[in-house]
Simulated assay, not measured.
Amino acid sequence: MTVEDAILALVAAFVVAALATPLTSRLARAVGAVDRPRDRGLAAGGTPLLGGLAMLAAVLVAGLLFLDFGGILGDRLHGILAGAVVIALVGALDDRFDLHPAVKLLGQIGAASVPVAAGVEVTNITFPFLGAVDFGSAGAPLTVVGLVAVMNVVNLSDGIDGLAAGVCAIAAAAFAIIAFDLQRDHAGVLAAITCGAALGFLVHNFHPASAFMGDCGSNLLGLLLGCVAVEGAVKTQAILALLFPLVVLAVPFLDTTFVVLKRLKYRRPIYAADTNHFHHRFSAIGFSQRRTVLYLYAWTVCLAGFAVALRFVPYSDNGGSFDPGWTAVMAGLGLLVLAASVYLVYTLEILKFRVTLRRRTGRAAADVDAEVARAMETGEFQALRADDGPSGPRTPSA
């Protein structure tokens, strides 16, 4: 398998997903798998789900055409595709029948166990300055836990048109580059297929979306990205192998971590939807859905680019010696990514909220600062409308 195979596989997956999505939308409407307004989403409801089935079709078709199923790698690839089918079906049932969270979790564990049983398993990790750490018999269950975590991270981030599909496409592209550089060609092609499937679906999912991927799609992308990370980087001997997926998927990981901590703080169920996600916060300060998702894409690109740079910039000889010049370059890139992250998390959410509130309501600075402090404590920003005036939000006349 070569880079050319990966490019062709990406194109094939893109075409299949783009063509199949309208068909899955018709199926969704026929069986009643239609989105209902939820607290964690910004959609009004009524959009067909099951877009994940179109991505599954794209992955299976492109996989059969461009993946090499010979030898021991073939067993692992068969396991990944089988697990993909299982989680897509579990997600489709959830989209239609709204399964209990415990049932969904069991389905995720079952789907993750399929590729792990086929050999998609992390047995050891190489840490900088510490060397290899062997997990032994704990490798398999730890890998299952990791795959389930990635599935839920992607699932929880899917609350605005185009966000999950775009972020996963960017992440998959970064994983493909890293995997090929680590000579994990099978993982590189699988990552390219995942990227193509997400982009093909994004044709119909970018705002205003005509189709949603549903839990069917978000869990599918999460499982595929998790398997790609394991096969393409984590189970290699690369010193920064574990860091690559954490940096590439930092945006959904940070979003999920923040939301879960908020729910734990206020003693709410972890699985209960709320309005504490990044996209809700951007909406609360007046961002449109398109602007919100483009900012989050840009953040993901910055982090993914930094992860790729960690692999390609020769700042170290992997033996403990660092090149001063290239190390300075990496430090500079790291500071730029950190600055972009601070800008998005702090400036856009806090400072812009303060300025917007003062401008639109005409309230005193002290009152606004108190409101911002309250919002920071609770994590709940009151949405601002363009017609808000000095006396506060207008109410409709009777």
Rank of each mutant, 00 (worst) to 15 (best):
T347H: 15
R358P: 00
T347L: 06
K352D: 12
G362E: 07
E371M: 08
E349W: 13
A340S: 12
L348R: 05
K352C: 10
V329A: 07
V337F: 02
L348V: 03
T327L: 06
L333I: 02
M330D: 04
V342C: 10
V355K: 11
W326D: 03
P324V: 08
G332I: 03
V337A: 01
V345L: 14
T327E: 00
M330K: 05
T327I: 05
E371G: 02
R359H: 14
R359I: 06
R354G: 05
A339L: 05
A328L: 11
E349M: 13
D367T: 07
A370R: 09
D367P: 02
L335E: 00
A366M: 04
V368Y: 05
Y346N: 00
P324S: 08
I350G: 03
E349F: 14
L338E: 01
R363S: 13
V368D: 08
W326N: 06
L333T: 01
V337N: 01
T327Y: 02
P324T: 12
E371L: 10
A340L: 02
Y346D: 00
L344P: 09
L351T: 15
Y346E: 00
V368L: 03
R360S: 09
G334N: 02
L351I: 14
V337R: 02
L344W: 09
L336I: 15
R354C: 05
E349K: 13
D369I: 04
V368C: 01
M330C: 05
V342S: 08
R360G: 04
A370Q: 10
L351D: 09
S341G: 06
L333P: 01
L348G: 07
T361K: 01
P324M: 04
A366S: 14
A328Y: 10
R359P: 00
L335P: 03
T356W: 10
L348C: 11
V337D: 01
T361W: 11
A365V: 11
S341W: 04
L333C: 04
T361M: 03
A340M: 08
L351V: 15
V329H: 08
L336T: 15
E371C: 03
V368I: 07
G362S: 06
L348M: 12
